[in-house]
Structure formats: structure tokens, C-alpha cells
Amino acid sequence: MKKWILIAITVMILSGCGETDFTPRAIEAETDICAVCNMSITHEEYAAQLIEEDGDHLVFDDLGCLIEHINEMDQAELGAAFIKDAQTNEWLNIERAAYVYAPGEWTPMSYHVLAFENTDAAQQWLDGGQQGELLALDDLYGFDWGNHH
């Protein structure tokens, strides 16, 4: 009887491990450091994170660091990636966000790219008198950071 209980418990534990959770986690400012530049994540409102296919979380202090990491990694390992919304500070999936390159805006590693919930929100921000260039995610992967960084 004890053997069957042990088997049942083992099956329940293993079945719970089968699916990877691609939900962003909270940033822990005291201990989290950027996976690219090794800086502390002291300005959480600019934080980004990547969840690898195996469930490992990597955090970044700036969207530019996240993009640099994605450009260098095996795409098969990418599960999901998130960035903070410049207006709401909520996590956004990078594939659904819109971006603005705003050289006059401060970001932790001086990439000067802000994320918005959608193109309309980004355009409204620009229409509010802010200077910048509207970008899509694909633009960021090929962005010449050297000329903008």
C-alpha cells in the first residue's frame, strides 16, 4: 500500500513539472543583476527579462541589453521575453509591444529605447511633444546600437 502511495505522489510531482511557466517574475533589486552588463537592476521601470525554454529566468537592466542577448543566443532556447511599459510599468511581451528610440530619454545603459503597450500608445507619447522614432521589434534586432549607444 505504501508503495502505491509513493508512486502516486511521484507521478503528481512529475506531472506538475511538465509545463514551463513563461510568466515574468518580480525583480529583486537587492540581488538581481543584468545578464549582459552585470549592473544591478536598480531602475526596475526599465527592466527586461527573458525566460528560456527550460524555465530559467535572466534579467536585464535595459531593453538594449535584452536585445543584445537575444541576438547572440540560440533562438530555440528562447521561451518568452518581457519589458516594462514606459507608461504603466507593467510587464509587456516584447513581441506585442511597440518601441520608441528617444535619444533625449535616459535609460540605464543609454540605449534610449522605451516600450509601450501598442503603436497607438507609443504614437500618443510622441504626439505629446516627445522626440523619437517609432520602431517595431524587428527594427531592434537589426538596430545599429553602435551608432545610437
Rank of each mutant, 00 (worst) to 15 (best):
A98W: 06
Y46F: 15
A26M: 13
D21C: 04
M12Q: 02
Q124P: 05
F60V: 07
C37F: 03
D74T: 11
I51Y: 02
E72N: 12
S15D: 03
N147P: 05
C17D: 07
A122W: 06
T31V: 10
N118Y: 10
Q131M: 13
E117T: 14
D61I: 02
I27K: 11
F116H: 05
Q131E: 14
L114M: 08
C37E: 01
M12T: 10
K2R: 14
F116Q: 01
A80P: 00
A86Y: 10
E72T: 11
A8H: 00
N89G: 03
S110D: 14
H69T: 13
E44I: 13
T31N: 06
T10S: 05
A35P: 02
G146K: 11
D120P: 11
Q75N: 12
Q87A: 12
M1C: 11
L14F: 08
D54V: 01
A122L: 05
D74P: 09
Y46M: 02
F22L: 11
M1T: 15
Q75R: 15
L126T: 05
G142R: 10
I41P: 04
M12P: 00
A102C: 01
L126P: 00
T10F: 02
E52D: 08
G128A: 05
E28F: 10
H69A: 13
Y111E: 04
F82H: 14
G16M: 05
E53N: 09
L78Y: 03
N93I: 08
